[in-house]
Design a protein around this nucleic acid. Structure first.
Lengths: 334, 334
DNA sequence: ATGAAAGCGCTAACAA
DNA sequence: TTGTTAGCGCTTTCAT
């Protein structure tokens, strides 16, 4: 494998000149450049990125830690972040944390090992009590709901407002007994905040808040959504609207309601949250909240790059909330 | 940031001893090890992976190039590969090629740059004429249908057999005019092979092969599936079975048929291919082919590791075909 | 069981 | 415009 010195020798110049050619530095005479390029082709030279990394103290790679990539939501997030990073000539290495606290901490320490120039961490397992551990001396951006006012840059959704808008939409469509399908709410996360938005909407509309209508599941995925929705019908809970805190749950719920023989939107109207690609194609097509995913990804990458490039560590931190819109489809009556 | 030499000084030993401790080498006295570990903790030492990479000539990272990660199929593939790689202490860096030939070639050259120890390339844009370019001196495993007998290790699906099984299943359920929704078939890829399987099944059953029943779309995604299925109904094509060459198309088709007022499975039975997570939760639940994704991912990673670890390049190449099963759900009558 | 020397391939800083 | 020097932080080899 040819090194920069082999090329230098072959072209009759110094290693530095070759390096300057490779990196498009200005001060190289045209003729010299040609000579070098020719030698590079002839020797089939390839830069050794590891050596460059060591020399520059940069890896050109950022880490992205998400619970799992095989979910409509996180795969979309990953896709958007990879694309945004690419625009800045950064590669993305993905780690799956399985939503566990330990794995999320491990991801944090990976970037301490300078494996990555920075880390975007979709924190689900870490809690507010771990805030101290985020006070690290390397670039980190947190995605999620767990660290408001924490010691890191933070990109979040307008959970409360958007959940309120979703619930209000159901109310406008005539629902009076609106259930919510949510994740666990013993911790502050998107479920908790979206539940708060749901409650606000009911209150503003003067609707009673029946605790039985608040249904929580352990994992917010399709399987749980399907099972719980079916049970809610079979137990005779009685509801005419259902707000699911994410689209995976909602996809499952649509399935569960169908199994239970409930017609959507005639008997029950359903709305989700996230606007994953699939939601448009379900039967019935799913109404949902569309946060501005691209803006969130772009902002997360930007914040991270800012940190990577700043010369001295600053102590201020930014919190970004994306905008959102309500996407009305068949599941709430089109 | 503390280096290995800082730790050595602090512990009163040589850098080499510290290195030996870090890498769990046997020849270190217990007392020495403790001393070193203590110093490491005290100085908050972290290995510099870039330096280690340069020294060892390995990066501990493999590349995975897929068309896009935001699709049920590829996100599942990515998830499985990341998990398999993790078991072997390898990280995975993901690149999105957008199915373009140029990006796929770029991914190949990335790994030539020793950014990755090896590359798993889900080839969609590259064609058989590019086979020569795969003759590279670094580890590559191709996922897909385009390079049978090529100069690389290759993991593929049993496309023909599985497509035949899918079509036969529709025939067994009483379908007589079975349409196929496929990608372009001017090149050898999964669409072509699955179309061949479809034809075989018709032939074996003695059913006529009406060319009008072969429908091809440019992109095999949900949007195209929905639009085309609707048009097929509206144009009065007349069909009682539909085999979609992947689940994304099938999800779209279910949506399109619903829009056109066609009941599944009563009027038309539908089967897909891939068994993505979503298919189980659709309404109606989607019958499909389930290739052994885990086995494919595991095999791809294994083949790659074998190449990475072999001392001298061998010229033989392995072709692996996964097993498959037909998953029968509501869309073909349960 | 430990250490000294040399080098992985590149680039920043300075010199010519 | 080009070249020289001196590392980046680690590991391999060989001595002790």
């Amino acid at each position: 494998m040819a090194t920069i010195r082999d090329v230098a020798k072959a072209a009759g110049v110094s290693a530095m000149t070759v390096s300057n050619v490779i990196n498009d530095h200005p001060n190289v005479r045209r003729a010299t450049r040609e000579k070098v390029l020719e030698a590079m082709t002839r020797l089939d030279y390839r830069v050794n990125v590891a050596a460059r990394n060591l020399s520059k103290g940069r890896t050109g790679t950022i880490g992205l830690a998400v619970p799992q990539v095989n979910s409509p939501y996180y795969s979309r997030l990953a896709a958007t972040i990879i694309t945004a990073a690419e625009r800045h000539n950064l590669r993305v290495s993905i780690e799956q944390t399985g939503a566990s606290r330990d794995s999320e901490l491990a991801a944090l320490s990976m970037s301490r090992n300078r494996l990555y120039d920075g880390l975007i961490l979709s924190a689900v397992g870490l809690g507010p009590t771990d805030a101290e551990r985020l006070k690290v001396d390397h670039p980190v951006v947190i995605l999620g709901e767990r660290f408001f006012g924490g010691p890191v840059d933070h990109v979040a959704m307008p959970n409360v407002e958007a959940a309120e808008a979703a619930t209000s939409h159901l109310i406008e469509r005539g629902c009076r007994r609106i259930a919510i399908l949510s994740g666990r709410v013993d911790i502050v996360d998107s479920s908790t905040l979206r539940l708060a938005g749901y409650r606000q909407a009911l209150e503003k509309a003067g609707l009673p808040a029946d605790p039985a209508l608040v249904q929580t599941v352990d994992r917010t995925d399709m399987a749980e959504g399907a099972e719980r929705a079916r049970k809610m019908v079979e137990s005779g809970l009685g509801f005419d609207g259902l707000f699911c805190v994410n689209d995976s749950l909602a996809m499952g719920a649509l399935r569960g309601l169908a199994s239970a023989g409930v017609r959507v939107p005639d008997q029950v109207k359903v709305i989700g949250f996230d606007n994953v690609k699939e939601s448009e194609f379900l039967v019935p097509a799913l109404s949902t909240i569309d946060p501005d995913h691209d803006a969130m990804a772009e902002r997360a990458v930007h914040l991270l790059i800012r940190r990577i490039e700043e010369t001295e560590p600053s102590t201020d931190h930014e919190e970004f909330f994306s905008s959102f819109s309500v996407v009305i489809r068949e599941s709430t009556g089109g």
